[in-house]
Amino acid sequence: MTTLKSRALMLSVAILVFLLGIWELSIPAQKAAEELTEYEILMGSATPKAGVPPPSEIIIKVYEELSNPFYEAGPNDKGIGIQIGYSLYRVLTGFGLAAILAIPLGFVIGMSPLMYRSLDPFIQILRPISPLAWMPLALFVIQDSEGSAIFVIFICSIWPMLINTAFGVSGVRKDWVNVAKTHELGVWKTAYLVILPAAAPTIVTGMRISIGIAWLVIVAAEMLVGGTGIGYYVWNEWNNLDLTSVIFSILMIGVVGMTLDSVFGILQSRVTYQE
């Protein structure tokens, strides 16, 4: 008797094989349709046509790149590990700075109805702004592309954490606050012993949403800023018309995003409590 989990896994693999099979089979047909012109034959067909590569080529590419992920051969030729490393550095720095600001501020907003009401209009206006819209202003003020990219991550990570922290803190059950009061816990002890653990699942959910958005935004930001990072790598390979590398990097963006999400998923299950 197979479990649901193993059956689901088998079905996943079957779907993967099926889709890749269709993809693989459709590529040669495409190539066959393109007869070489007489001119091209005369010229010896020096430049190969750019086309969508079959999965087999991508698998070879994945193997090549991942077997040597940290090579460095000039500014436009770095291993995928280095590019992802740059992106992660920017994401984690921007996200970390945002957490340092958003979580304490969210605590204050959640605890104080006055602060909530007075800051709410700012949050409501600033939150829907596309983080990339900040880029020109950031480039002008910070005068540094690296700093601007981190700033863009910072600004897009803030809102989910801020709002979730405030929501979690304000929603702490009154009974638990009363327990803290009747036991004469001070402000800091109440925050640390009661409010923080009570609101932790909501706060971590906010962090999880934030890191997801940050990873979405970094790709676009690096396409704009250039130089290094996985976003720049995608754009660079597009300029090279190397679609195999483009597809490979798309795959890597997905894998890294999934990993970041599951790290926060683990953290979330750690802080979740049952009532």
Binding site: D175, W176, N178, V179, K181, T182, H183, E184, L193, V194, P197, A198, A200, V271, Y273, Q274, E275
Partner: peptide, 20 residues
């Protein structure tokens, strides 16, 4: 005035902190 450890309270819904 205000809560104090001199006056302990047992609530109907127990009011235990569920993460402890």
């Amino acid at each position: 005035s205000g809560p104090s450890l001199d006056r302990g309270v047992v609530f109907q819904n127990y009011s235990l902190l569920p993460w402890l």
